[in-house]
Design a protein around this nucleic acid. Sequence first.
DNA 1: TATGAATGAGTCTTCATTCAT
DNA 2: GATGAATGAAGACTCATTCAT
Lengths: 193, 193, 193, 193
Amino acid sequence: METQKPKRAKRDPEGRRRAIIEAAAEVIAREGTRKLTHRRVAQQAGVPLGSTTHYFATIDGLRRAALEELARLIEQDYDAMFRTVDENGGDAAAYAKELNAYLADAEQIGIDTAFYSTAASDPALRELARHSIALAIRRSLPYVDEPRAKALAMLMDGAMLETCLLGEPVDPDAVNLAVKAIFATKPDPGDIR
Amino acid sequence: METQKPKRAKRDPEGRRRAIIEAAAEVIAREGTRKLTHRRVAQQAGVPLGSTTHYFATIDGLRRAALEELARLIEQDYDAMFRTVDENGGDAAAYAKELNAYLADAEQIGIDTAFYSTAASDPALRELARHSIALAIRRSLPYVDEPRAKALAMLMDGAMLETCLLGEPVDPDAVNLAVKAIFATKPDPGDIR
Amino acid sequence: METQKPKRAKRDPEGRRRAIIEAAAEVIAREGTRKLTHRRVAQQAGVPLGSTTHYFATIDGLRRAALEELARLIEQDYDAMFRTVDENGGDAAAYAKELNAYLADAEQIGIDTAFYSTAASDPALRELARHSIALAIRRSLPYVDEPRAKALAMLMDGAMLETCLLGEPVDPDAVNLAVKAIFATKPDPGDIR
Amino acid sequence: METQKPKRAKRDPEGRRRAIIEAAAEVIAREGTRKLTHRRVAQQAGVPLGSTTHYFATIDGLRRAALEELARLIEQDYDAMFRTVDENGGDAAAYAKELNAYLADAEQIGIDTAFYSTAASDPALRELARHSIALAIRRSLPYVDEPRAKALAMLMDGAMLETCLLGEPVDPDAVNLAVKAIFATKPDPGDIR
DNA sequence: TATGAATGAGTCTTCATTCAT
DNA sequence: GATGAATGAAGACTCATTCAT
């Protein structure tokens, strides 16, 4: 004589909301933004369909919440990566090594790409991506000046995108080369575009 | 009593097909992959709904054809860009200048990003993106060796992605710096990943 | 070995459309505007849900089409009623008699009331009702002048509405009295509001 | 450290109930019966959703309560109107004048029409409308006999309905004519329907 | 008692896809 | 081959209603 019909879930707004957001983030990361539907999220989160619409009346709102979650995950990984760079001296070699390690984490790369792709698809979401880019730049400022930090961010984003598209990490030698080149180059103050 | 109801379009299968593909490519570039539907394409192309399903039985097939079209457009732009680089000496300065010019073309950047985003969302489409990446690398081989060509491709893709997300071209100084740095750096044969 | 799965209905756009409109009109007349849904209409018409949305993409469009159908039915009944009034001499007695007969037809009264109620609920539909009112006035012009025709139309609409609400015809004596009074009264040219 | 979260409203069950009913009546009058939902009423009344369901477990009950409120408002307006008729002598001219004034009050006409339309849509609510009709008849009994009172009620309801549908008051001359005609006519005892 | 979370049902609408013509 | 009708499936969203707190 078990509890056969728990019919209704315990009341737990915070937990419910978290579960739905996390499920939505996972759907985006694994299946892409096109597949983000209330139904799919409900299934992934193991909650009734009505619950997803209760917490997120519109799919746009749910998508945004999911993207914010992805941004949070990405920020965490940035943190971890740069912490290791610091611990290893903060030079070009350390930087390149950790970047290559980052690119080898297929799951993380999938998250990054899904995040950027989704953000690119909707102007209203681009601010989230802008924040991530700015963060990446800021993270490099302890090691290099701003133009080089920006160059490193571009390199990183390009490497991430290509890694996702290729289905395997981009050539580590090319990454090493680029990172070292950028680290080693002083910006040319007399440069005119 | 002439043909009163020329309902049927003139027989021009190839033209029809082209029109549909171009319309689909435009829908993806302007509204995103999520909005690609037979109906929208039919409207955009000014052809009956039946034509879109006649030429492309499934929406996946239509999407692929549209992506191939986008790849073609991108390739054309690459061609033009590198031709100009050639004409200007093929050095780092010429390369950087043209890359910045490329990034300033918002429409082109939109196409690139839509192409990559769509390709990233579906493993079956990634080959198209892989081909584009390989092409970009090959294009740089006349100027630099392979590792540097790969580094330049990453930089280019990263700059493209960030430009789309930022809504404005990335810092040209950073692009200049990175291009020159990569051009100037010899690959380290003793490099160990 | 009968045809077990006729799966798909014969192609008959005009017939389909008519069937859907008539079903919608019947739903409104019998169950009220609140109950007009694509599903309910599909059931009433015996067609798949998809067919109702194929012909009427929006519920507003379907409602309007249904109301136009009701207006047509009402006009037919007006025609019949006034034809009989004509045949019986076109005097007050004939008019009152037919009006009372009209009010005794519960189904017709239901249609009238549903029509007016629905039209009242949406400004976009009121033009349909205005047309009906104008028609009712015009119908009486062969017998009386315009102010009296308008008075008769008001009387008629009020009697219709009350009959519906009461669930039985309003007092025929009162109708007789009012009709005769209006017929018998010359408009006062010196009347000032 | 006072009561930091006065989440709960002050205890005033009757006031709450009144507020909800009035909000519901307003929703019906302004947006139509189709738009009457617990949520909309809660918003209109400025009370939590739970309050509307607490006081009115079903939407049907809430609708009925709202209609009763509308009936009350209508009765008040009848009172005011007929009081003025009395003060002005209670003759046909006074009656017609006040009726035209009544018809010129767009808000009041909207309430009347919403009330009747809603009542007509649901047999369970028609008793409320019947009561209103009976009241209108009774109000005229001080001036005329019953058949004429009934005739005046029909005229009034018809004029009200047409005014709503037309979006502007019906022709006052026609109203004058009809009222005077009905006032002036003695019922024919020998009348046979 | 008061409130909002929970949830299933149902509504409008859009679509991919199939097929008859 | 060309076209639009036909239709099931699914998606976003709304709501009435129930119930735990």
